[in-house]
Design a protein around this nucleic acid. Structure first.
Lengths: 226, 226
DNA sequence: GTGTGTTTTTGTTTCGTTTACCATTATTAA
DNA sequence: TTAATAATGGTAAACGAAACAAAAACACAC
C-alpha cells in the first residue's frame, strides 16, 4: 500500500482575494507550460519538506506579491485522482484576503487580477476552488469583520458597506448596517474626513490591529435585504 | 523543487465519534509498531492513487467498522514537518458521526471507544486533531441537527437533548429545547413509547432521511444556559 | 451669495424570535 | 401509595431584524 503512494505530490494553492475597482477580484497566473497552457490558474507551488502547510502557503503568497498582515486560512484539500492530467497531485488550498493598496506584484510571470464574477478559462479544478473560497469568505464575514482585511487603512462606512455587499452579493440597509458597524469591537472613529468631490465629506474609520477569530460579532445575518 | 517532494506521504485519518454510555466517545486503535508503539491513534491509512480523499476516508472507516449512512466531512489537513517522527507525512483528517448501535467493529487490531473527555496517551498530533473535530462538530450542531447521526434510529427528546449537551458542553433548558426540537424539519413524532423502568414512558421520535446541510436551523444559540 | 445636486449622517418603531424562568400533571413500576 | 421521570404552557424580558425619512455638509454653477 505504501508503494502505491510513491507518486503522490502535494501542492498548496492560494486564492488571493482583494477589492479593487469596486469588485471582488482574485489574483491569477497565466500558465506558460502544459497542461492547461495559456489558461489562468491560482498561484501555487509544491510543499517543501522543511515547511508546514501554512508556511508553504505564505511562501507562495510572497513569491507573487509583497504583502504582510494578511488574512490567510486553510480552505480545503482537493484530491481527486483526475484533477491533474499528468499524475496524482493533491492540493491543499488556502485563501487570503489582502488590501489591494498593500500589494506589489513581484512575480515575473504573467499575473493579474480578475473579477470573481467574470473569470477567464481556468486550469485544473481551480474554478471550483475559487467558488469554495467565496463561500468560506461569506461564512467568515457572518462571524467576524474580516472584510477590514480588504479595506484600505482608513475607510468610510460606505466603503465598508460596499465591501460587504460585494462579498455577500446582496444590498444591505444603510442605517442598519451603520448601527451594527459602529457597535463592532475594534472599529475606531477618526477625526478625519474624505475631501474630494462635490458632496458631503465622509468620516473615516480604521480598525485596531487585533487577533482575528478572537471575537464573534455575527455581523451580517441572512435576509437583511434582497 | 519537485525532487524535494519525493518523500511526502499522504494519509487520511478519521475521527469517528459516537455517543455511548452517556458520553461522547471516539474510536481509537492501539498501535502495534513503532513509532508510538502501544499508544492510541485515530484510524487512518495511506491514500491510494486511484481514490479521492473522501473515498480514502470512507475506506478507512469501513476497514474498522461496518457502518453506512454516516456523516463524514473533511476536517483539516495537518502537515507539520515534525508531526511524524519517521518522515514527512501529511494527513488529511476527516470526522465521522456514527450511531453506536450501527457499528460493528470489524478490525482485528486492538480497537476501542474512549471518552473524549478522558483520552489515553495519543500518538502523533492526534490529540490536536480530536480537539479540532470537537470544535467542528459544535459548529455543525449550531447550524443543523447533525446530532441525529449519533442517536439511535428511534430516540426520546430527552436523549436528543443529552446528546446536544454532551457535544455543546453545557446544560440546556428543557422546555426551550423541546420547543425548538419540535419545530425542526424532519423530526417525526412516533406512536411509540419507551417501556422499561419505573417511570413514565417517553415518546419516541425519529428523523426522516434527508440531505444534511440542506437546511440551516440554527438550532442552538449561544447563551442558552450555562 | 444663492440655489442645486449629491452624498453623508442620524433615530425610531414595529415585529418576531430567543431566552430565562417558573410549576404542575401524567404515567408507569414497585 | 410512593418514587421516579416525562410531558407540558405561559410569560416577561431581551435581543435582533426590518422598514422607513429628513436634515446637514460640501462643491459647483449661476
Amino acid at each position: 500500500m505504501v508503494n502505491e503512494t510513491k507518486t503522490h505530490e502535494i501542492t498548496v494553492d492560494v486564492v488571493i482575494l482583494t477589492i479593487k475597482n469596486n469588485a471582488l477580484q482574485v489574483l491569477l497566473v497565466k500558465r506558460v507550460n502544459e497542461p492547461f497552457k495559456d489558461k489562468w490558474a491560482i498561484p501555487g507551488g509544491y510543499v517543501r519538506l522543511s515547511e508546514n502547510l501554512d508556511e508553504a502557503a505564505l511562501r507562495v503568497l510572497k513569491e507573487k506579491t509583497a504583502v504582510d498582515n494578511i488574512y490567510l486560512e486553510q480552505l480545503y484539500t482537493f484530491g481527486d485522482p483526475l484533477r491533474h492530467p499528468d499524475g496524482r497531485v493533491i492540493t491543499c488550498a488556502y485563501f487570503a484576503l489582502v488590501r489591494s493598496e498593500d500589494i506589489k506584484i513581484v512575480s515575473t510571470t504573467e499575473l493579474g487580477w480578475h473579477k470573481v464574477m467574470d473569470l477567464p478559462p481556468l486550469a485544473f479544478d481551480h474554478k471550483e476552488i475559487i467558488q469554495y473560497s467565496l463561500k468560506r469568505t461569506r461564512e467568515r464575514l457572518e462571524i467576524c469583520p474580516v472584510a477590514y482585511q480588504l479595506l484600505p487603512e482608513k475607510f468610510t462606512l460606505t466603503e465598508m458597506q460596499k465591501s460587504y455587499e460585494l462579498i455577500m452579493q446582496k444590498k444591505l440597509d444603510k442605517r442598519n448596517f451603520r448601527k451594527k458597524a459602529l457597535s463592532t469591537n475594534g472599529l475606531v472613529e477618526l477625526e478625519e474626513y474624505t475631501k474630494s468631490s462635490s458632496k458631503r465629506p465622509a468620516r473615516l474609520y480604521t480598525f485596531e490591529k487585533i487577533e482575528l477569530n478572537s471575537k464573534r460579532a455575527h455581523f451580517i445575518k441572512k435576509g437583511d435585504k434582497k
